[in-house]
């Protein structure tokens, strides 16, 4: 079976390395991005199966930083995206998952970092199944 390719975008380098490790152990091939531009490049090339996007990709202390969500909204609508964040808010989930009049919501799922690696793995599996 072909390995599923996952984009993991997070500006927290340490967290990224840990999760990357977990995902690779699960048999996924992982491409990482540390900022919105890198993530955008990989998304636009289009040969990934799922994208995991940190909500605050630029500044973890900036409440107004929604760069991950903005990427999900604007780039590569066909690629299923999971929004990941240390700071889950009602507004952000609503924006990520709200049904649209035309087309799909920006993201297929919304996970808090606090929920641990298993929540993320389940979300990835669901996204891959739905894609088949």
């Amino acid at each position: 079976m072909k390995k599923a390719i996952i984009l993991f975008a997070d500006n927290d380098e340490e967290f990224l390395a840990t999760r990357r490790n977990t995902l690779e152990q699960e048999g996924y091939q992982v491409l990482s991005a540390l900022n919105p531009d890198e993530a955008r490049n990989i998304l636009e090339q289009g040969n990934i199966d799922v994208a995991i996007l940190d909500l605050r990709l630029m500044n973890d202390n900036d409440e107004k930083d929604l760069s991950g969500l903005n990427l999900a909204k604007r780039v590569a609508p066909a690629i299923p995206k999971i929004i990941l964040t240390k700071f889950p808010t009602v507004e952000a989930v609503r924006e990520a998952l709200a049904p649209q009049l035309i087309g799909l919501p920006p993201a297929v799922d919304f996970i808090a970092k606090q929920e641990g690696p298993s929540a993320l793995l389940t979300a990835i599996q669901k996204a891959l199944i739905a894609q088949d």
Binding site: V90, R94, F110, A127
Partner: peptide, 25 residues
Amino acid sequence: PSFEYVREALGPALEGMPPAVDFLS
């Protein structure tokens, strides 16, 4: 309101329609 409620109400939009079209506190 909690983000878990919103997630449950609005998605994940994997199988058919999500249970709700919007979420309000």
